[in-house]
Nucleic acid binder design. Sequence first.
RNA 1: GCGGGUGUAGCUCAAUGGUAGAGUUCCAGUCUUCCAAACUGGCCACGCGGGUUCGAUUCCCGUCACCCGCUCCA
Length: 621
Amino acid sequence: MAEPKENVLMEKIVSLCKRRGFIFQSSEIYGGINGFWDYGPLGAELKRNLRDAWWHSMMREREDVVGLDASIIMHPMIWKASGHVDTFADPMSTCKHCKKLIRADQWWPLMCEQQWTQSLAALTEPVTNRFNTGDLLKWAKGRGKQLAPNLALVRNPEVTISWLVQEAEKGKHPADAREFYLYLATEQLGATGFITPCPHCGGELTEPRPFNLMLQTHYGPVATDENIAYLRPETAQAIFVQFKNVFDSSRVKVPFGIGQIGKAFRNEITPRNFTFRSREFEQMELEFFIRPDEAVEALHGSVATVPSQGHPGEPQPNWGWQAWHQYWVEERVRFYENIGLPRATLGFHIQQPNELAHYARATVDILYKFPFSKEEDGEVKGDELEGIAARGDFDLSQHEKFSGKPLGVFDEEVRAAWAKLPDARKQAMREEFIEAKTRTGIDKKKLTPADAAEAARKEADAFFEKLAKGQFVPHVIEPSAGLDRLTLALICNAYSEVTKTDDKGKSETTVVMKFHPRVAPIKVAVLPLLKNKPDLVKKAQAVRDLMRPWMNVFYDDGGSIGRRYARQDEAGTPFCVTIDFDTLGEKPDLLDTVTVRHRDDGRQERLTIGELLNWLLARVR
RNA sequence: GCGGGUGUAGCUCAAUGGUAGAGUUCCAGUCUUCCAAACUGGCCACGCGGGUUCGAUUCCCGUCACCCGCUCCA
């Protein structure tokens, strides 16, 4: 495994980040605080450039996306509606023997998957859950020893079985399979009560303790249960909640998007991998609202199909959610390529149907191959920079339900088109709708087929009744990216080492941060060759002032020129401009010319001061 | 939250139950010439708290942070 070496690389990157002022540990002089990080001067510039690049490509260069900047603390009911209060407060148990952490709601599904429970299940009568103690004893001394070594029945078969027999004589039997395992995990009921076994080893699980994954606070001067609020765990919900306001005030029409950049907070169980998993982080999220496929079909006769690979081109009116989803995945990849992350450094994870949340139809994750990314099946896949989810109308519908306020839109074209549709066609669409909803009801919400079909029919009634009036709740494609993760990816991607050997055979390794000029924290450094010559200094400062309104310029007159170049290499500055005696006219034909030195290869060229600004602008934009 | 590892200048690394040392970076200065040049001078450290001890950076305990694993990742 190459892992130790990769950790060395990551350590070097962390060390450089501190040395040069990209990223510091938060609250360092107080000993630090787990899961929080600060950006130093270079990091702040880099992160700002990335944030601006996203905003620019999403809002300014498009007609169909508008921005939002919502508060971090919002009405607590929002997190009820979104499902975060429930899924983020999952109680967890720890196994006292093998120390694994088990989510309480995952316990039974996990139990069912285990070999030891399956082999035990074969020993009990299916309905009554009665068992033969002889079989159990044999199992405990054989298979049980290998599969569930910490189960009470295995550790101490005689004692456990004797109390099982006592219970049986009192006429008490496990009511169901779940209880059966509790019996087998318990040695002394009187002393301990029923013990819940660990799915992994059969050992004793602690009582479930709540894990609060959202950060809590109180609003108002007195902290009571009535004014609990949460720091948002994602920025997206604010977009859904303000959907109607944006829609009514911005003269936008579906399909269109609302984008937002902002902080979000999660009580990660294990903050790890430098800034990759932090408790406070910044997200760049777009919610792109589209018509439901049924509306597209009514308008255009059919929903366009696009190739499953590659960019599908300019948006078309007959695109359904699949085309839009594919489009956004490819748009986002283009964005990453544009800021210096080639496709080869990225990875993709297409979530399988069983990984998807019940409200998601498809999710593609864009990954970056970080130095800490693990090998899986012989290749490094990477870790998540961004997830692009097709979420249907789940979020808006939830907020409609919880707030009681309608969040649908009215679309005159859809109403007109629907009216002209033949009845047979309407009927066919309705049947397809019901079939699809029934399937997700069974697969994802674990409903019985009859209940699922019933719910689907109700949903269809409401949906098509509205659609006939031109009303619908938009569906959404959600590209959601992590700004801090992206910053880290660019730092890792830029990091490179150059070993030079001088005339005396002494070799030295220096670091060059090869940022794309578009995102580099400092675009150009202006360096007077010597600082003890006032004319050189004055000229250099004039050149600096010329560039300053247009880009981040750094002026440095300290140390030898080589040292200053090396410093800029570590900061990732793509260009250094040096003012020498020829600039002042020592050789008259070179008057008012400067050397421009390229970071990546040390190449130099001579430009006039007059052409310098445009030359640079062409390269840093 | 659990288990293992680590913790000495900004960085890399020494030494020590009694005064903590080097290289490098950084800062100031000398220098008319381009990739961490040389010379001179300067700043800066035992993660934090407690205990043992006459005395602790060193031994012990706790804590915090980081790394690895478990786990989680909308």
